[in-house]
Amino acid sequence: MASKIRLGIIYGGKSSEHEVSLRTALSIMKAVDLEKYEVTPIYVQLDGNWVKGAPIKGQLPSVESLRLQTRPEAGGQGRGEDTLPAASEKSLPVLAVGKEVDVVFPVVHGPNGEDGTIQGLLELADLPYVGAGVMASAVGMDKWMMKTVFAKEGLPQVAYIGVLRSRLESEPDSVAAQIEQQLGYPCFVKPANMGSSVGISKAKDRRELLEALQVAAKFDRRLVVEAFVKARELEIGVLGNEQLITSVVGEVIAAKEFYDYEAKYKGAGTELQIPANVPPHVTRQIEELATRAYRAIDASGLSRVDFFWDDQADQVYINEINTMPGFTPFSMYPLLFDATGIPYGELIDRLVQLALERHADKQRNTVAAEELD
């Protein structure tokens, strides 16, 4: 390995969370220590084309400038300058990434990114990468499957129902009746495979429920409907492979009815209280449930685990695990660890080291029958 670690940052992607990924990538690029790392931006355009930017040499642009610099042009190519982490004119074959970098930090959010797809490509390229592996990424992304695993682990959850888009299209009234009977109103409707609160709606009656189901069905064929619980929204960060560190607990106090995309990435009056003002026994319970959830899906590197706390009944429910949380200025995960005593730059260093350690451990696996002799 060269004196500097060659760090590839894969960002963009073919999903509705493309802009979120740009913001996350920009935050990481601004924070990396260029004395330690040679950073190579690798941009996945909206058309699916992969292009490599020049190594960062100078001041980075604003988020808006980055978005403009990486916008696909006619012919599917990006444009950029040597001083910007933007796309070059030359396409990059996906599996050729390994010749350019030593380790990858993939920050392609949503489908075709944090759901195990890019992780699978990096496995084929035999490259170390930050974050969860193929299985954990896929399970963590699919809310329906994630809830199934959590139920098997005995983690407390609110009541939910899984709905297939095909069933919704063939018998919408039957679907609505089942939800009304088993969950009641209000309830939340979500695409199973989508992050950043994209496609999520709160329904208070059948008309809103059917509309919410149609909205969610635009994003995925698998939908999840959850019962409403009047509770506070608490979040915790987990860092590590097998030896885990948990952050302080934070609270999301949403100005709107729930913590949606606008609140997460544009502020929208949402308050993040770090650390959260909760009793010590709630903190301990969340730490314990978060590590159980992390291990249940075999996560690695990092995850943010979200909870509901019904303070009247003193009941904690796990909501979900996010295996590739955002690193934007509004993102909870780095803020939680900063309050824990691990600042942003150090957090990136630790994640890169965890990626290298996990890859080295994987090299111990026997891959050929002849090696058993």
Score class of each variant (00 low, 15 high):
50 W>R: 11
50 W>H: 03
50 W>Y: 02
50 W>T: 00
50 W>D: 02
51 V>S: 04
51 V>G: 08
51 V>C: 06
52 K>W: 06
52 K>E: 14
52 K>C: 11
53 G>V: 00
53 G>E: 01
55 P>T: 00
55 P>D: 07
55 P>A: 12
56 I>R: 13
56 I>M: 14
56 I>F: 13
59 Q>C: 04
60 L>A: 09
60 L>D: 05
61 P>A: 09
61 P>S: 05
61 P>C: 03
62 S>W: 05
63 V>G: 01
64 E>P: 00
65 S>W: 05
66 L>H: 10
66 L>Y: 07
66 L>G: 01
67 R>A: 15
67 R>G: 03
68 L>M: 13
68 L>C: 09
69 Q>Y: 08
69 Q>V: 06
70 T>W: 07
70 T>M: 13
71 R>Q: 13
71 R>W: 12
71 R>T: 13
72 P>C: 06
72 P>A: 07
72 P>L: 05
73 E>P: 00
73 E>N: 02
73 E>K: 07
73 E>A: 03
73 E>Y: 03
73 E>D: 05
74 A>Q: 07
74 A>N: 09
75 G>E: 01
75 G>D: 08
75 G>S: 00
77 Q>N: 03
77 Q>A: 10
77 Q>P: 01
77 Q>W: 11
77 Q>R: 11
78 G>R: 15
78 G>L: 14
79 R>H: 15
79 R>S: 15
80 G>F: 10
80 G>R: 12
81 E>Y: 12
81 E>Q: 14
82 D>W: 11
83 T>M: 05
84 L>E: 09
84 L>T: 06
85 P>H: 02
86 A>D: 00
87 A>G: 14
88 S>A: 09
88 S>F: 01
89 E>H: 04
90 K>R: 10
91 S>L: 05
92 L>M: 10
92 L>F: 01
93 P>R: 00
94 V>R: 04
95 L>W: 02
95 L>K: 06
95 L>T: 02
96 A>C: 11
96 A>Y: 05
97 V>L: 12
97 V>K: 02
97 V>R: 03
99 K>G: 15
99 K>Q: 15
100 E>N: 12
100 E>T: 14
100 E>Y: 07
102 D>A: 08
102 D>Y: 11
102 D>R: 09
102 D>V: 09
103 V>I: 11
103 V>K: 04
103 V>D: 10
104 V>L: 09
105 F>H: 04
106 P>G: 06
106 P>C: 07
107 V>W: 00
107 V>D: 02
107 V>G: 01
107 V>E: 01
108 V>C: 11
108 V>K: 08
108 V>H: 05
109 H>S: 05
109 H>Q: 04
110 G>I: 11
111 P>F: 10
111 P>A: 11
111 P>Q: 10
111 P>W: 08
111 P>V: 10
113 G>V: 05
113 G>L: 08
113 G>F: 03
114 E>I: 11
114 E>Q: 11
